[in-house]
Amino acid sequence: MQIILNGLIVGSAYALMGIGFSLIYSTVRYFNLAYGMVAVIGAYVAYTLMNSWSLNYVIAMLAGALVAVLIGMLSSSILFKPMVRRGGSSLVILVASFGLLIILQNISALIWQNTTRALSISDRILPGYNLFGLIITPNQLMIGAVALLMMLILELFLKKTRYGMAIRAIGDNQELTKVLGLKTEQIILAVYVIGTFISAISATLIALEIGIRPTHGVTLVIKAIIAAIIGGLGSIRGALLGGLLLGVAENLGIYFLGGQWQDTVAFTLLAVFLLVRPEGLFAKKRLVSVN
């Protein structure tokens, strides 16, 4: 029904976030919590470009994503890479990434204020289209279409290019990547570029529905993590399914249990998966344990 459609659309955006996150995790093996905030900054930049320079939504979204990519690359080179080199455990880096998230969140609050910014494709609010009795709003159409497009492009990239193959290989076998002639550092940079790009697109898409505010950074990275874990860390297909599942579960929860339990549904889903099937739907890598 309508609820499932709502869930699938928002889930596709979650899926993008999860895919980017999973991609990065599979290569670097630590959780980068600032991921969500960098994505939101991409959305903010898109917002500024649209408002101040009247850029078209899609162009602004891409431009914002490029800025996000820049910040993502910087964070990797300036903060995370040195920390890994100093022998920091994944937990230490997780905590540090949280510090980065807080800093970026508050800088965003200083620049764009704490109020929720509106982002839209058009100047007027338009009614949704009626398709077989289901309503799909223009925003939903945009989200679904772009998400699908991004996933297709990513699929092609991973299958056809050298970088793509190296990324897929690095999780299983680091030696293989050397055969392809690429250094680990280059691959890490590549996944940061791709992952951050996808996440910024996703954040800008979600902003159509819920606006942009600094706290969305945390919200989105949590969704990304849940999607990635349900799907199985490191698996692109998994993150896709995980994101969709999360979106649908949330909306079903809202409809049948009430809007006030939305977060509880999301986290219970996470807990159930971690307890019952920690490797996720498409087992590829188990979560690295501290012990």
Binding site: L91, L94, I225, Q260, T268
Partner: peptide
């Protein structure tokens, strides 16, 4: 749970408790 999963579910509990 161990390691990162412990952290995540514990984090999730703080949301559930808040709800």
């Amino acid at each position: 749970l161990k390691g990162d999963s412990f952290v995540l579910v514990s984090f999730g509990f703080s949301f559930i408790a808040f709800n």
